[in-house]
Measured scan of single mutants.
Amino acid sequence: NKEKKVFISLVGSRGLGCSISSGPIQKPGIFISHVKPGSLSAEVGLEIGDQIVEVNGVDFSNLDHKEAVNVLKSSRSLTISIVAAAGRE
């Protein structure tokens, strides 16, 4: 599966507009579980089932849900590497 990078700058009070969840035991990782229509996440093409592999240089493969949320909230400017639809297989 091809990795792609998206860049998101949080402007004003707009949030990311997506929710994440941890994958099942047999498929660990952090996946996008919800994308709000019209949100920044939707605008850059994030979709439900995409796996987040890295954010701002932080490897997401071994993070738990709480740590992942903290990384996503730690910066107003995010570089997110995803594997599209990895969670839909």
Rank of each mutant, 00 (worst) to 15 (best):
G17Q: 04
E89G: 12
R76N: 12
L40R: 09
S33C: 06
A85W: 07
S21G: 07
H65Y: 06
K2F: 09
I80W: 00
D50I: 01
A86R: 13
C18Y: 03
L40Q: 11
E43A: 09
V83P: 04
L78P: 04
S75T: 09
H34D: 14
S81W: 07
K36H: 11
G29Q: 00
R14T: 11
K5Q: 08
K5M: 06
I80P: 03
G49N: 06
N62Q: 14
D50N: 04
N62C: 10
A86T: 14
I32H: 02
K27E: 12
V69A: 15
C18G: 00
C18A: 08
D50E: 03
L78S: 04
P28R: 10
S77M: 09
G29K: 02
R14Y: 05
N62L: 10
G45V: 01
I80M: 15
L46G: 00
E3R: 07
K5L: 05
F7A: 05
N62I: 08
V44Q: 14
E43C: 06
G38Y: 08
P28S: 08
K2R: 08
K36Q: 15
S21Q: 13
S39I: 04
G49M: 02
V53I: 12
F7G: 00
G23I: 05
G29A: 02
E43V: 05
G45L: 00
I82A: 15
K66L: 11
S21A: 14
I80K: 05
E89W: 09
G45Y: 01
R76V: 09
I25Y: 11
I30Y: 11
A85L: 08
K36W: 07
A42P: 00
I30N: 05
G87E: 14
H34R: 10
I32V: 11
F7R: 09
E54M: 12
I80L: 15
L46P: 01
E43F: 04
S41P: 03
T79I: 07
E43M: 07
F31P: 03
E54F: 05
K4E: 04
I20V: 11
S41Y: 01
D59V: 06
E43N: 10
P28L: 03
H34L: 05
S19E: 14
K66F: 09
G38M: 07
A42C: 07
E43D: 09
K4P: 00
D59N: 13
L46K: 01
P28N: 09
P24E: 08
L40E: 07
L78K: 04
S81L: 07
V55Q: 01
K27R: 12
L16Y: 02
S75P: 12
V58A: 14
E89Q: 11
G15W: 07
D59F: 04
G49F: 01
H34V: 05
S22A: 10
S39M: 01
G12D: 07
I32W: 02
S81R: 15
F7C: 15
I82G: 04
G23L: 05
G45P: 00
G38E: 08
I82D: 04
G45R: 02
I48D: 10
F60G: 02
S13D: 14
S77H: 14
S81D: 07
G45C: 04
V44S: 14
